[in-house]
Design a protein around this nucleic acid. Structure first.
Lengths: 239, 239, 239, 239
DNA sequence: GATGAATGAGATTTCATTCAT
DNA sequence: AATGAATGAAATCTCATTCAT
């Protein structure tokens, strides 16, 4: 089930309900620019002043639509999660092989990060893991989002285990780290190098090719070949 | 070779050279507490006030020894890098197998993170990747630190490739991500779960066992069997 | 003679004369809710936003009918005065004894305060005595209201003096303070204690009983006895 | 036991402990001017900006010594209470008659109010009776101060009752209202009329003279005279 | 060398009020 | 008449940093 940006699951209450189209547009504008600014500077260094200036509106207008900087940032993060989760869930080829599903996941993940910019990821990664002081309910909201965010991966891994394509002797959590970890690391490197132009198709393929040996069920090919060799040896000895 | 805090390789300019032993102690105290505070709150939320209060000294004293908050933080990060790099470089069993060297690296890395606390890692990960506004030279300094930080890993991977233990068909950078990525991901999960008591030996072993199939040189047995199959198929087609 | 909210004696200028019945209703609604909100929070802490929200109308609508927050508050206070003055003037038993009239006054006063809530009184007491910045004409308006407010009391005291029931050797203003002061003090105590359920009849009776010895004309019996004693002493000294 | 301004019972913690004489002076200055400004405008309308401007210091300096506007105001109110309570407690003529003690109380009370200005009283009366939102502990502090503030009056009334000078058939609380109420009312009138030059001695005497008949124990003189008359009548009838 | 004191600069947030529709 | 939308102006508060002593 996909989610659209205009009906996010993680709705955070706003100061003024956007009834009209104009108001909705304003909310979208602020969220868009807010995402930019938070992505560029991180939560603390971002200022409502800058957001307002980029939109050529008064700072007060921002507070007309959002209860505060914190809430705005939460909406930004929440919307990003919604979009990303939606994009990944929407196109998952459930009937393909586990490896193809994994490639799809990695490819989509990478493209989301690269298209949307890496700053927002840094924001999500940094502030999402924010320390104490984030407020009481904030944590729950984010944790739920993160759970939903990794759900498609967990699901495809579980399906792969069920179908025998993916090894069963390792807990899902570890497999998840095995997939997400290198991806995030590659992305962080991209952030640092300011070189965004990688070939997503190629990179995704390469990464999965690299990971697959560690993920797949004990090699069927190897088992088959070993059996073949055994039979050949038996036949030769009989001949 | 281990490094001490008073003779860092990555020299960050200080306001004044610590002449007396007393001054050196002051610098060490501020760096120690600074590390605590930056680790707990992150760069932006940490305050010089808190650092001074924990030391029961005046805020002004901090500025006697450091040009500013930014520089203090850089020294904190730099010192952490120096210590960590030193610890990893010092004990690396250069004569062991590639896989054993990798296990050593993972084990040491995990223990450093867990012993030193996760906050400092978050600091290094977040602020180390700080965006614009970091100042001109800061970036270079950090990049150099990060390069040196991953150098032991890069070296051992290169040695493994040279000795034929590690596959050569994948660029080193990718292998590096394959190792560091899951480690960081596991560490982030630990930060989140506030459950720090994992068995480092076991975890390191498990992670390397998981990764090794993706890193090692292609299985010789498998290659031989594949060749056998090829020859059989060729012979059959000729018959 | 009672006053209605729509024809206040103390005319405060409005933005527009309420032409239609609908508009009159609007003005009444805003005044009613405005009174609630101002009473609950005091002038500064009350917001036009809250008033509008409670009425489920737009904030702008308030400004359609009132020139501003200040004017609205003045109307609220003025209307309260009109109602209270009207209630007290209406039922005053002009033919009864001075003490009975005083009891009536105290009783009505207390009931107005307790029925209408203590918040509005706090508003009138605090903001009515507002300092500089109240605007030029505001002071005059309020002073006139306060004068009219205490007029019934002043009148009954004057009638009592004229009839010989009330002592003449003390200025009216002082007698007024003697009556109003304890009443307000008792009311403030009630506000603080959040215990509103006092028996008005009993309290009014008790208070007047307590005050009466200080207000009534010097006891005729006592005067006679004192004269008797004086004459006896004179006679004895002569003997 | 008297209290000095520099050792108030109601100590509210400050941001920076005033160690030196200079800092103490600053604190005193801010408290002095803060009292002025709060007295003139009330809590809400007073601004830290104005306080700073009158002292020709930076606003930040105020926050160096006080945690916030609220705390500063509490200190102002607390100090005023301490001073007033101290002044009243210090000179109370415990050996004098109840009436003289009451006159002393009224006189001191009036002079404190008039000397210190009426604005501060308005502040204490209004904000002291502040509604919800004052913070959790604030209420307790103020209630305790108010209790201590009226303690001297309650005590002298109790002593008067014990010695038979003051009537026992009325609860102390009511007698307290009977004294404080008119006083406050007179003071409010003074605030309004902006005419501060009353003769404290005369006013205090007049007020007590007025109140005394309502407070004193049933008139001993009257009882004595009545008995005298009865005896005379008996003697005459016998003669 | 250490620090007490002061502050400039700036951030978030509130709210009465205006105006075009 | 009603209001949705926008905002100017201001207020509180924070904090790194400087400087005279």
């Amino acid at each position: 089930m996909t989610r659209t940006a205009t009906a996010p699951v993680s709705a955070v209450p706003q100061r003024r309900a956007p009834a009209s189209a104009k108001a909705e547009q304003r909310v979208r504008d602020i969220l868009r620019v807010g995402r930019e600014v938070f992505a560029e500077h991180g939560y603390e260094r971002a200022t409502t002043t800058e957001i307002a200036q980029r939109l050529s509106i008064s700072e007060a207008t921002i507070f007309t639509y959002f209860r505060g900087k914190r809430e705005l940032c939460m909406r930004v993060i929440g919307d990003w999660y919604d979009e990303t989760i939606g994009a990944i869930e929407a196109g998952m080829p459930l009937d393909a092989s586990a490896r193809e599903q994994l490639e799809y996941f990695v490819r989509t993940h990478l493209s989301v990060f690269l298209v949307q910019g890496t700053g927002i990821c840094a924001l999500v990664l940094s502030e999402g893991r924010a320390r104490s002081g984030s407020g009481p309910d904030l944590g729950d909201t984010l944790i739920e989002l993160q759970r939903r965010y990794t759900a498609p991966l967990m699901d495809l891994l579980a399906r792969g285990q069920a179908s025998g394509e993916i090894r069963r002797d390792v807990p899902l959590r570890l497999l998840r780290s095995l997939v997400l970890g290198p991806m995030e690391h590659m992305l962080w490197e991209l952030v640092g190098s300011a070189q965004r132009s990688i070939d997503i198709e190629v990179s995704a393929g390469a990464l999965v090719a690299l990971l697959w040996p560690a993920i797949q069920a004990p090699d069927q090919e190897l088992l088959a070949l070993r059996q073949l060799r055994g039979e050949l040896q038996a036949a030769l000895s009989r001949a």
